[in-house]
Amino acid sequence: MKALIESIVTPLVDHPEDIVITESEEETKIVYHLKVNGDDVGKVIGKNGRIAKAIRTVVYATKSDSKKRIYLDIM
């Protein structure tokens, strides 16, 4: 899952080396925290969150091994 998020985001940003993805598991869901360079925040969120929404749609469509819900947090 981390690899997926990374492969989606990397070509969109100007500073791919600053991408940090962390994972934290909660009771009912697995949360992935995505951090990018300050200059790139707009590039992963987009106007009215359009890019963020597209990233989430693709991520949520992926079948995961665990039954827990997946959540993507963009910071």
Partner: peptide
């Protein structure tokens, strides 16, 4: 919707 999201990306 997934196809459209991917298309946009």
């Amino acid at each position: 919707q997934t196809l459209n999201a991917l298309q946009y990306l």
